[in-house]
Design a protein around this nucleic acid. Structure first.
Lengths: 135, 135
DNA sequence: GTGTATGCAAATCTTTTGCAGTTTA
DNA sequence: TAAACTGCAAAAGATTTGCATACAC
């Protein structure tokens, strides 16, 4: 029941919101979709949702903490369903494949570095751009 | 003499290119300017350079390795003069201040993580979003 | 001189907003 | 039914491109 996720976020349960949530959930584990991607998938499914609504809903979901927005290096926004556990990303420069990973030591070091400079860590973004290892 | 930097990059030495290089050099250590920022500074200096040219030149400089482009989280591009030594960034969410840092251990771990997943590290982007430590 | 670079305006792309009509609670 | 939500079209912001002119070599 996605209904509860939406209600909990203080959002009315509407058809477009359910459809968009559905697209994100069925996009696969490491999927990171742009608003345009979501829109295209909805079109393919014959849904009648406007692109503006996709943008509005994704932004609302982000504010509600339901999805996370990333920028990677293309400059356009991509979204993924927020998962309980934090992770960073590895993007293959040749295939576009995205892999999620988590490293305890790096996480800890980031806090230490911020502290050392007189700051408190609020958030971070770590993206590794990689290519297939030559065999 | 910036002339050589440009020549070495295979670019003709023109007034707009020299002016833009000049702006970047005089912007201060941790400055990260958007194309619009550069354009505004040129205007203030009474230079007659078009915004389109600023974009074109910055892109050429990037391709020549003279400047580095970042996206941070705003989604717009900011540029800095490439420095010999690699570094990452810390952006203050309250003041916008940018601090550069480098951590050997994190660098090493990134390579190991990429390898572990069957990839080769090509590049990476690490940005810490911080706020002033409450005193 | 010749080819490259520039400025301007128009075009493109991504994202946002205004508004009248529709849906949810 | 009232408030929130939606679609569409227009607007806005960032960046790119076409083209005639100007500049570097």
């Amino acid at each position: 029941m996605d209904n509860n996720e939406l209600r909990k976020a203080g959002l009315k349960v509407t058809v477009p919101r359910l459809k968009i949530l559905d697209v994100l959930e069925n996009a696969g584990e490491d999927a990171h979709l742009s608003a345009e991607d979501v829109f295209k998938i909805l079109m393919e499914q014959g849904e009648d949702v406007g692109l503006a609504t996709v943008y509005r809903v994704l932004t609302q979901f982000e504010q509600a903490g339901l999805v996370t927005r990333h920028h990677f290096d293309s400059g356009l926004s991509v979204f993924e369903l927020s998962s309980e556990d934090h992770h960073d990303h590895m993007v293959c420069t040749e295939t576009g494949q995205v892999v999620e990973f988590y490293d305890e030591t790096i996480e800890k070091l980031q806090h230490e570095i911020a502290e050392k400079h007189g700051f408190e860590l609020v958030d971070h973004s770590l993206v590794l751009y990689v290519k297939p290892k030559k065999s």
